[in-house]
Design a binder for these strands. Structure first.
Length: 418
RNA sequence: GGAGAGGUGGCCGAGCGGCUGAAGGCGCACGCUUGGAAAGCGUGUUUAGGGAAACCUAACGUGGGUUCAAAUCCCACCCUCUCCGCCA
């Protein structure tokens, strides 16, 4: 959420930003609601001041009569205010974060490639996609996943289970080496936390979130939610350095409205496990940590050694909370079509959210002069157990249909083949 | 799951329905004192919103209610602690 004061003073900037983020919201209506809200608050506060003054001593019968009327007046105004407040909050929450000046302007396809590690894998045979590879090697069972839970659920089998564990341990070792505190988080969170982090449970038809009936809990779509909430309503001491976490959780996504998008095999599923980095830092440090997180993602993927590119996400594809976002896309044979052997598919993502989430979650830090200010938050994926196995199996497949094990995983997975 | 106790400032802990944003203590900051320190003494010490300022408003777990007036009375919920039961 943006500071309403900032919106008041920079109306045109905010309007323009909403436009390039492709968010339809009427900033004028928001400001009018804000105006009404402030007038009501003033009225109510004046009435309360009057009443408090009279309540200091013992009022006369006459005054009591008068104050009774004042009390009713306050109550009436409060009712109006609570409606206006609700309207105001809904509008304010819908305003997206500002956009980094270097982020490309445009939609999903207008990203900018900022780094490519090497040329795509070249196969001297017709490469398979991970779905065939995994099925042929008895590493996954989609049909029984569908039977037991539903479409887009699956059972991992045999050495895929071992590789998943190995990947997590490999990721944990790298990220904690950089000073990140290891967490395993709840897989459910309160709706208020979800919304604070910028996710929209219930209500909207396009929600990505599974909600638990008769409760205020939802299944998390990422540990970003639980770790973001970890320090909600706290004043942090960042004088000793940023708070850096790496958290393991399951992730649940309804993928509503995602039908028709690439959804072969493991690429788009309803449940997977993920190791996620999250940083709370001072505003002046957030760009630095964004680079740090991206570099750790690179370190992890460089070790696994498959072709990838890093892209700078365009304004219209940033979502609500991100100020700037980099995705790492792995080369995948499943993305091939026609005479192309493959294409790039997202495997990690890292975002700098500035104080957008911190403001909603009320996460502040103590400055040197003793005052407080909102912290900045950043997040990025370290290991994703749906997409990493895709990149590994597809890039490490052999002529005979078997799958080799990346060298960096050997200490964690002592196998020649999966 | 059953029984009981309790949630007040950075912490501990008071608080007849009205002058209590909240006694007292600890802690912390500054000053005096000292060769220096401790002790002692003095002063200060919540947060948020509005206002140029004086100042005003809000917050005593959360939400509702009673009242001219609620930290204080009533109701619901949440959380913590103790005991019993059950349990991976």
């Amino acid at each position: 959420m943006l500071d309403i004061k900032y919106i008041r003073e920079n109306k045109e900037v905010v309007k323009k930003n909403c436009k390039i983020r492709n968010v339809k919201i009427d900033i004028d209506v928001l400001l009018e609601t804000d105006e009404r809200r402030r007038e009501l608050i003033k009225t109510i506060e004046d009435l309360r001041a009057l009443r408090n003054q009279k309540s200091k001593g013992k009022p006369t019968t006459e005054e009591i009569e008068k104050m009774r009327a004042v009390g009713e007046n306050i109550k009436k105004n409060e009712e109006v205010l609570s409606n206006v407040e609700e309207e105001f909050r809904a509008l304010l929450m819908a305003v997206p974060n500002l956009t980094h000046p270097d982020s490309p302007v445009g939609g999903e396809d207008d990203f900018k490639v900022i780094y490519t590690n090497r040329k795509p894998t070249k196969f001297d045979f017709v490469p398979k996609n991970h779905e065939d590879l995994m099925l042929n090697n008895d590493l996954i069972d989609f049909e029984r996943g569908t039977k037991v839970t539903g479409a887009k659920f699956y059972f991992s089998k045999n050495n895929l289970v071992r590789m998943n564990q190995a990947l997590i341990n490999y990721g944990i070792d790298i990220v904690t080496k950089h000073g990140y505190t290891l967490l395993e988080t709840p897989d459910l969170a309160k709706d208020a936390i979800l919304m604070g982090v910028g996710f929209n449970p219930r209500g909207s038809a396009e929600t990505q979130i599974y909600s638990i009936q008769n409760s205020d809990l939802s299944l998390v779509g990422t540990a970003e939610i639980t770790v973001g909430g970890f320090h909600a309503d706290e004043i942090l001491d960042l004088s000793v350095g940023a708070k850096k976490y790496v958290a393991l959780s399951h992730c649940f996504r309804t993928e509503a409205g995602a039908y028709g998008r690439t959804s072969k095999g493991l690429y788009r599923v309803h449940q997977f496990a993920k190791l996620e980095m999250f940083v709370f830092c001072k505003p002046e440090d957030s760009e630095k940590y964004h680079e740090e997180i991206l570099n750790i993602e690179k370190e992890i993927i460089d070790g696994l050694d498959f072709p990838y590119q890093i892209i700078d996400i365009a304004s219209g594809d940033l979502g609500g909370p991100a100020y700037r976002k980099y995705d790492i896309e792995a080369w995948m044979t499943m993305k091939g079509e026609g005479d192309k052997q493959g294409g790039y598919g997202e495997i990690t993502s890292c975002s700098n959210c500035l104080d957008y989430q911190a403001r909603r979650l009320n996460i502040r830090y103590r400055k040197d002069d003793g005052s407080t200010d909102y912290a900045h938050t950043l997040n990025g994926s370290a290991i994703v157990l749906s997409r990493f196995p895709i990149a590994i199996t597809e890039n490490y497949q052999q002529t005979d249909g078997s799958i080799a094990v990346p060298k960096a995983l050997k200490p964690y997975l002592n196998l020649e083949k999966l």
